[in-house]
Design a binder for these strands. Structure first.
Lengths: 211, 211
DNA sequence: GTCTATAGATTGATAGAC
DNA sequence: GTCTATCAATCTATAGAC
């Protein structure tokens, strides 16, 4: 673990273990051992294991959401200035690109993205809400922006398709380049740029599919 | 729990709890209590908690995969008979429709579909492989069939898009009609047929998106 | 803030009577 | 096949010395 204060080392370790082993399958003993911290330090710094999870998610998601929201607002502002409708592709890109760019910025970030990618389907409601409460505002912003971009698409269809998009993204965020197919015949090279490119094309086509 | 033998009651209970609470968050005590069975009966009938998970998945997934494979083969056979290419839409439908139909067939089936929807992003490798080993063959069949249907699409792009489709499906299978958005303004009525219909349109458009 | 020690509860698994 | 009783390990959380 890097040389920094205990609190940060615990956050880094928790990020890694929660992502790779799962929240319930990570014990504070293994965690504090990895973080080179004392078993008691988790409760001293964070109060409980669940509050630690909350802190792990907040540390990265709040800044990421700020970036995504700024980019979306920029697309909206530019469209308004030119008196045209905002483009669905630009809006989706403003949401997706920072996420996957962030994923590639560091090993910890990769673990984090994997963690929140899975949060959407987390069975434990406490864990899931920990993520959803922080993600809900930006999803609302995106929904409203896309509704401006595609006014002819009924809201209930738009929100359904947005759910599909979240599902696709979650999957990419969890798996990254790792294939779901145990298929030795077909390796997946897929560098970062190709992956983003393909993901954009896929979700844009899905979003704009005929009613 | 229904009146049937202990083994079945344990399978039913495990299906429900593994799906709703998660595998690691489900204790054998709570499980055997729900199944009205003795604590020791799990190890007697299945050997271990992990073997129980294996049994839970096998019981439903093997028959379901058989149905999906038959439907895919039927599409392929009909196309060959008429000397035309199989349709991508027919193939996707052969894979997706039985899955979501099965999901609606009983409460237990719904839990099961939710469970395997999440298996793809399960962090614990043992649990994930438990599912992947059984899912891999049918995914291979689907991939090869779609490659026939869309020969102009490079295999590495096809497999990437198939991954996206699996992600979208997983999400629908996990969440069902339950929204990812904590948005009281926008309820999601989405009956079964509309959901399948929208899902088909979304993934087909994504699969056939321009390169 | 960091440590040791431990409480107090829960876990998966098993032994052995019936 | 089903039961009780229990083991040995593990867990989160806390108390209290330093």
């Amino acid at each position: 673990m890097a040389q920094c204060d205990t609190k940060t080392r615990i956050l880094d370790g928790a990020e890694q273990l929660f992502a790779r082993e799962g929240f319930h399958n990570t014990s504070l003993r293994v965690l504090t051992n990895l973080a080179e911290a004392n078993l008691a330090s988790v409760n001293y710094h964070f109060g409980s294991k669940e509050s630690l999870l909350q802190a792990v998610i907040e540390r990265r998601l709040l800044p990421l959401n700020k970036i995504r929201e700024e980019k979306i607002r920029k697309v909206l502002a530019l469209a308004e200035k030119n008196s045209i409708l905002p483009g669905a592709e630009d809006l989706l890109r403003a949401f997706i690109e920072p996420t996957l760019e962030f994923r590639n910025s560091s090993p910890g970030a990769r673990d984090f993205i994997s963690l929140i990618g899975r949060s959407l389907s987390e069975p434990d409601e406490t864990v899931r809400n920990c993520f959803l409460d922080l993600a809900s505002p930006i999803l609302q912003v995106l929904f409203k922006a896309l509704h401006q971009a595609l006014p002819q698409l009924p809201p209930e269809i738009l929100i359904t398709r947005l759910q599909f998009i979240m599902g696709t993204m979650s999957h990419v965020m969890c798996m990254g380049n790792h294939s779901a197919f145990n298929n030795p015949e077909l390796p997946l090279p897929l560098d970062h740029n190709t992956l983003v490119d393909q993901l954009m094309k896929f979700v844009l086509a899905g979003l704009e599919a005929p009613k």
